[in-house]
Amino acid sequence: MKKLIILFIAGILSAFSMDAQVIFRLSAGGVPGLMASTSQDFVLDRPQTLNGIYGDLYVLASCSPSYQLEVSKTLRERILVGVSLSIANGTGFKRGVNNVNNLYKKRVHNYSLMASAKYYYYNGGDFYLYGGAALGLGYSHAEIIFQRTYQTANRMLAEYELTPVGMNYGPGRIGFFVEGVVGSVVNGVRIGVKYRY
């Protein structure tokens, strides 16, 4: 996780070192309505079988949105490139096979660092439409808690996102955006604020 943050800060510093407009975006993304992340480590499906209900499957109990901080700069007119750091947390439960209530609890923290590119295909002054894609690495840190002991399980994940349509409105330095996202971190919408430096 520390490496990801260092890489992210390095990305920010490199963006500042270039003579170009820098844009910061802070957002939350997830399933519309729930605004919960759909990260690969979280089980969102309702269990459909007895094994799913009583067995070893961890069932998602709660899940945060995927919070994201993105720093990007204009590479050319209409094209932005950037780097983003996303964070989401989730909690799941597992029931013992003998049905002795919820013996196990699992907390998952997902971090992902992605390089992103956006293309502004409509420029209406204060209103923009854009699409984009992002690709990167994720780090999943899971804590499996059993009574008062816990063990951890960490793994790296490949992360990707596609943003077919995004809308951005903001007359000044500050703007607001909503975008539809399909990918491994968020499947749904992402909303947030933008600051142009």
């Binding site: 439960f93 919820n102 923290h109 840190h141 008062r148």
Partner: peptide, 21 residues
């Protein structure tokens, strides 16, 4: 956000009920 790992909460707010199941 990234420092939300809080091991002290273990078992707190987790009463072992099975309402979700």
């Amino acid at each position: 956000l990234s420092c939300s790992r809080d091991y002290d909460y273990i078992d707190r707010g987790f009463d072992g009920t099975s309402s979700y199941t």
